[in-house]
């Protein structure tokens, strides 16, 4: 469908003998926020990693099935993995700024691509810092170490760093779980702003966050996609028993 940015077809992931994801079929819609919820350890993070082929870094992982980005399977033979990862960016659960300056963190992705022009880089640094609401807080100290920032600021920096390479999709793996409520609020606001330009997939164990922020929600349980649909409907009128039980807190 025209509207689908990412489509997975019978996506299955196993670590050796253990099957972690079973025949996942989902459609991530363009310019929407899709939330993946479910109890811990049921494969949510692994699912995200399959979407930008970061799963390749785990040697024991075996992926079968297909993942289509704009209609092309990212697991096909002739695919340039680094290009996929540039187009599908990721923000990790624990903020991981590099121990470089704020400026160099954001410049990293650009320099990797071969961008040398200082003016281009400075422009991108300012733009992404403004987009993530960090500009006013750090404009006086761009060359200070990123490690001096607070947790919430570091996470927003990581988002800015991901935005610098102009991705099309942003994958967020429980981006707020290590942050305080004030920072969480700022980042949720940021996500709502970002979806106008980007497609966002967020994994979260916080159901209220999923309900607040997302347009579409998928419930993942023990490696199976139990239910997938419009957030409003999932939370008010779930089709599956399991979904209803999870949402009403009968297990977690």
């Amino acid at each position: 469908m025209e509207d689908d940015k990412i489509v997975t077809k019978e996506l299955t992931l196993s670590y050796g003998e253990r099957v972690v994801l079973k025949n996942i079929n989902l459609r991530i819609r363009r310019n929407k926020i899709t939330a993946i919820i479910g109890p811990s350890g049921c494969g949510k993070s692994s699912l995200l990693r399959c979407l930008n082929r970061l799963i390749d870094l785990t040697p024991e992982a075996k992926v079968s099935g297909q993942v289509f980005l704009d209609g092309k399977d990212i697991y096909a033979e002739d695919v340039d993995v680094t290009d996929i990862r540039r187009r599908v960016g990721m923000v990790f659960q624990k903020p991981n700024p590099f121990p470089k300056s704020i400026y160099d963190n954001i410049a990293y992705g650009l320099r990797i691509k071969g961008v040398k022009s200082k003016s281009t880089i400075s422009e991108v640094v300012e733009r992404t810092l403004r987009d993530t609401g960090l500009w006013d807080e750090v404009k006086e100290r761009l060359h200070a170490s990123a490690m001096e920032l607070s947790g919430g600021q570091q996470q927003r920096l990581c988002i800015a760093r991901a935005l610098a390479v102009e991705p099309e999709v942003i994958l967020m793996d429980e981006p707020c779980s290590a942050l305080d409520p004030a920072s969480t609020f700022k980042i949720e606001e940021l996500m709502m702003r970002l979806k106008k330009q980007y497609t966002i997939v967020i994994v979260t164990h916080n159901m209220q966050q999923a309900a607040r922020v997302s347009d579409v929600t998928g419930f993942l349980y023990l490696g199976r996609l139990i239910e997938f649909g419009e957030t409003k409907r999932i939370f008010t009128n779930p089709k599956e028993h399991l979904t209803e039980d999870y949402i009403s807190g009968r297990f977690g």
């Binding site: 930008n52 970061l54 870094l57 680094t82 290009d83 990862r85 540039r86 960016g89 990721m90 990790f92 624990k94 991981n96 590099f98 990293y108 992705g109 990797i112 691509k113 990581c158 760093r161 991901a162 390479v165």
Partner: peptide
């Protein structure tokens, strides 16, 4: 490990 992951997630080889 997070240094490596972070860099590769940005498209580095």
């Amino acid at each position: 490990k997070s240094f490596r992951e972070g860099a590769m997630a940005l498209g580095a080889t």
